[in-house]
């Protein structure tokens, strides 16, 4: 038997990939994004742009779509993240101990440690700002949460021997998830609609305390995503000691 080269072996796969990619490309070109395909008031996006701020009380339209119009999806996405983090954590726990020592890598330099320590509080504060102002300015719970997680990551890089509490992370994560659902259930109890933004009037558009329940949901998401991603990074790092 002649040994076939790598290219020959991957030819069928390459052909299928090109076929699918080509079809998708041509189809996407054909659609013409941004043009009106239906009467303009029938397109959901136009309705969101026209009425988003008045219907949801959030001056960031992305937030009004993500947390109010399509809030149920967001609950689903939070769950996806939760499952992924739980799954990865569980699989790492299930790993058989192979007895091999993992290389720790070089110690972080003075600049890394000190600079990191200076930057971490600023980054964490910025993350908190982003999720608190999700209904006013770009960003929101997801973005704020991952920014906080980057601060945590920087901490782990700057201080590789640091002890972290996985319990606290998973506790705050679960409580935040439960409060997200709890806020949704308020709607179900008051108006019979899950995740309904039931507060009257939403407050003054553009103020920090406005938008009804949306900022509360974003706070819950921010805490949840932050602790989840931090927990994931911490799990992946493994036990440093």
């Amino acid at each position: 038997m002649m040994e076939r080269s790598t290219i020959q072996r991957s030819l069928p796969a390459l052909a299928i990939s090109i076929l699918i990619a080509g079809t998708l490309f041509l189809a996407f070109v054909e659609i013409g994004f941004g043009e009106n395909k239906v009467d303009s008031e029938d397109a959901v996006a136009n309705r969101y742009i026209a009425n988003g701020t008045t219907e949801t009380g959030s001056s960031n339209l992305v937030t009004s779509v993500v947390v109010n119009y399509r809030g149920f999806d967001t609950l689903g996405e939070v769950t996806v993240l939760f499952l992924a983090a739980t799954g990865v954590g569980a699989m790492i726990n299930l790993l058989p101990e192979d007895g091999k020592k993992r290389s720790k890598g070089p110690k972080p330099s003075l600049i890394m440690t000190q600079g990191g320590m200076l930057a971490i509080p600023v980054i964490a504060l910025f993350g908190t700002y982003v999720f608190l102002h999700g209904h006013l300015s770009p960003g929101g719970g997801f973005q704020g949460g991952v920014i906080i997680a980057t601060a945590f990551l920087l901490y782990l890089i700057a201080k590789p021997d640091a002890k972290t509490s996985h319990r606290t992370l998973s506790l705050s994560e679960s409580l935040a998830g439960l409060s997200f659902i709890g806020i949704g259930l308020i709607g179900l109890a008051v108006s019979g609609i899950f995740l309904d933004n039931v507060i009257e009037g939403f407050g003054v558009l553009g103020e920090l305390v406005s938008g009804g329940l949306l900022p509360l949901i974003y706070i819950a998401i921010g805490i949840k995503v932050g602790s989840e991603m931090s927990g994931l990074v911490e799990k992946m790092r493994g036990d440093a000691s």
Binding site: V44, Y69, I193, F194, V198
Partner: peptide
């Protein structure tokens, strides 16, 4: 049937 988020179809889920 049921709606979520306070907006009926097609605006909400």
């Amino acid at each position: 049937t049921s709606i979520t988020g306070g907006f009926g179809p097609p605006w909400g889920i």
